[in-house]
Design a binder for these strands. Structure first.
Lengths: 136, 136
DNA sequence: AGATAACATAGTAAATTAGTATGAATTGGC
DNA sequence: GCCAATTCATACTAATTTACTATGTTATCT
């Protein structure tokens, strides 16, 4: 029950993008320089963020990334879901693959785990990038 | 952001204990037989649960485990904290050891992660074993 | 053409997870 | 007193995950 370093990196990188928002894209190397993050790793994360529509990219020299939504339309849930690929399955399963944790699916605890999942997702969805950067 | 199989096992084992509560202790092997859980693994978990005062044990033949608190005094948070040893550190750290995720501690995001941690803990603490078994 | 970017894929060391293996200490019943 | 059933304790392990690095290719600006 913890948030990954990966998610933390993504939040920092996106905050950097948000704080310096303009029409001009910002490069990964610039972001990583400011926030002291591993460039190649963050590149990967941004491809996922792009896939989920949180950012858009501009190729080539003078290229980089831009936010693709308003600050109050990007939630922590969005970020985690983009970056952490197995974010929030029904906990009944434990890991990505069903390891027969509860034989006889759905077991008596299925609803419990589902409720918890929903609560967590809703909570994380209520935390927006806007609110995150407002406190920096 | 997920709940471990370990926690799931602990919940199932404790529920089994709760459903068959009496003055007589129930053995790990009985619990595991009923819930189809790995005995040696559950033994380990129960030592942690005992350490945290959630259960008490009786040695020797005819021995086993008993709940040590009322059903509404055992929360999911209690269980997770007992069983999952690095449950809920400030997310700023990522893993047990500070990997210099945020140099210049506390970084600007520290409060955010702390708030999330608190919210999660409070929520998990509001889910009691009593409520869990009432739906089985 | 050359520099600077994003994009893509594969590899990798360390840690974590979900166990197993082996055995010691304790107690009840015969 | 012995045996079986139990908790208690520690060490090992295979598979997975995590947080990266390496090695490129492709696209765009000057």
């Amino acid at each position: 029950m913890h948030i990954s370093v990966k998610t933390g990196y993504a939040v920092r990188a996106l905050s950097e993008l948000a704080l310096n928002a303009s029409e001009k894209p910002i490069s990964i190397s610039k972001i990583c320089e400011k926030q002291n993050l591993p460039i190649k790793y963050i590149e990967q994360l941004f491809r996922n963020l792009k896939r989920d529509g949180l950012v858009k990219s501009i190729h080539g020299s003078k290229g980089g990334y831009l936010l693709n939504r308003e600050l109050n339309k990007i939630s922590l849930k969005n970020i985690m879901k983009a970056v952490d690929d197995d974010f929030s399955h029904n906990f009944c399963y434990g890991t990505k693959e069903h390891i027969d944790y509860c034989k006889g699916f759905p077991c008596g605890f299925y609803e419990l785990w589902d409720e918890i999942k929903d609560h967590m997702e809703n909570y994380l969805d209520s935390i927006k990038l806007e609110q995150i950067i407002s406190r920096l």
